[in-house]
Amino acid sequence: MNWWAIAAIYRFEMARTWRTIWQSVVSPVISTSLYFVVFGAAIGSRISEVEGVSYGAFIVPGLIMLSVITQSIANASFGIYFPKFIGTIYELLSAPVSFLEIVTGYVGAAATKSLMIGLIILGTAHLFVPMQIQYPLAMLAFLTLTCLSFSLFGFIIGIWARNFEQLQLIPLLIVTPLVFLGGAFYSISMLPPVWQTITLFNPVVYLISGFRWSFYGLADVALGWSLLAILGFTCLCLGAIWWIFRTGWRIKN
């Protein structure tokens, strides 16, 4: 393994985060606060408890997932797309690094930033609603796995995208709706039976359900399915990236 290369990529990518640290920190704090004002206070006050948890506290895991998923995709896709766009990817492709080392560096940095944001949101939420985390280690594990898997997915989007419009396409048109419809702000048990069945085809349901379980012990689907979904998604992304580097798809002539 070329550990120096992994460290160099990681440091270089994290430097981008530190350059925009206020934007990185303030932005999620403001948006989280807005969600709490809108969903927690304005709408939430009209909704009774969900399965014994106040609505404000109930939406915290979903809210964290929403930010972490979108941030992971955005960070990782931009991280690899930008070198493609400005041409500096030549250096990466001509260096003695394997796909695994490149991915570890880029995805590691993207996931780190997302994890930081997730924890900042958690801290901000704590200011608005009293909440408990029943299984903190499981919560951290779910959060980390989500950051990693969606950073991998973002990395694929960054390689696939030919322009900035395409970079935004999948996150805006597919991922965000899937997160909103994945039980971020409600329990799927609140839906009519037909929609409950349809919702089970949404992979994000499993992530949010597992994550919420680590907070309150409540889950829409069995914990095993949640773990299987996130691990399966991670493996799928890793396989796709391996194929991309093996064939040079969209990165080599």
């Binding site: 290369a5 440091r11 270089f12 350059r19 250096e91 260096a95 003695p96």
Partner: peptide, 22 residues
């Protein structure tokens, strides 16, 4: 082809690291 916002010394450090050198 250079990262526009990165500083000269850092971008050279990146290159050295990519080639597996401390």
């Amino acid at each position: 082809a250079l990262e526009p916002f990165e500083r000269v010394q850092n971008t050279v450090r990146l290159s050295r690291g990519l080639f597996g050198l401390p």
